[in-house]
Computed example of a mutant assay.
Amino acid sequence: MPSKLRLLLASNSPRRRQLLTELGLPYTVRLKEVDESYPPHLHRAEVAEYLAAHKADAYRADLQPDEVVLTADTIVCLDEDVLNKPADEAEAIRMLTRLQGRAHDVFTGVCLLGADGRQTVFSDQTRVHFRALSQAEIEHYVLNYKPLDKAGAYGAQDWIGMVAVTRLEGSYFNVMGLPVHRVWEELEKWGFHAL
């Protein structure tokens, strides 16, 4: 990575940190509380991209000239419904009950923002197929793995991913919260190189 630019990751997600680390890109974590509401007229991928750009805007005034902030937001869509992070265990159980036995889409929106105002916003989509699950399986997962911090109330890298996900169309890492193939490609355009 050139010394000219420093990458900031604006995410509390351990999965995003793990993925960036495994890419071999040095970064610093910087966190702010940002409202995650969005206009109701937005549709699927637009929601993820809007939220990623909205999060980046919160850092715009604080960026140093050599800093680029990376923000991301992952959403789960069942048909036209956006399933965000569940408010509690009961909502998590309701979400997983809806998802079981069906296919759904996971969108991760990503924003790169530089201090000079340069901005790149993109998203990636993965189709996830769940097998039918029993109520006992759903409750076991929610009560033991506490997926309240995850869109759609599940993490593909968790127990439920091992027992429920039968097929993916698209990037597995996108479902984890960061489409690293696209992030790598876009960061190279910005001048970041890990090799």
Rank of each mutant, 00 (worst) to 15 (best):
P14N: 11
G170L: 02
L133F: 12
P179R: 08
H104C: 03
E49L: 00
G24P: 05
L178V: 05
A72C: 03
Y154F: 13
K146H: 15
A115E: 11
P147G: 10
A87K: 14
E36D: 14
K189R: 15
R60I: 06
L143T: 14
S171H: 01
T71C: 15
V106S: 04
I75G: 13
A151I: 06
A58L: 08
F192N: 08
L31C: 05
D88T: 01
R167Y: 10
V76G: 10
A53E: 14
R44C: 12
S171I: 00
F173V: 02
A132G: 03
G114P: 02
T74E: 06
Q135D: 15
Q100V: 01
H104F: 10
K4P: 00
G101Q: 07
P147D: 11
V128N: 07
G170N: 01
H54I: 00
R167S: 12
Y141F: 11
D57E: 15
A132D: 14
Q18S: 11
A45H: 15
Y172C: 02
Y154N: 04
A132V: 13
H104W: 03
T71I: 05
D73I: 02
R44Q: 15
Q125K: 15
F107K: 03
L9H: 08
L187F: 11
E67A: 11
L178W: 09
R102T: 07
D116T: 12
G109H: 04
M1F: 04
W159Q: 04
L20P: 08
S134W: 11
H104K: 00
R127A: 13
L70I: 08
A45M: 02
R118A: 13
T166C: 03
K189N: 12
R60E: 14
D66S: 13
D116A: 12
N144D: 11
A87E: 15
Q100I: 01
D116L: 02
Y59M: 09
D105P: 00
V165T: 06
V110Y: 05
R131T: 09
L148Y: 05
K150S: 09
K4E: 15
Q100T: 12
P39N: 04
G170K: 01
D158Q: 09
T71Q: 05
Y172L: 13
C111V: 06
L195N: 09
K55T: 05
D116Q: 10
H104G: 01
G24N: 03
E46R: 04
H43A: 07
R94Q: 11
G101K: 04
Y141R: 10
Q135P: 06
D35C: 05
D35W: 01
P2T: 13
A87Q: 15
W184G: 00
L178F: 09
H104R: 02
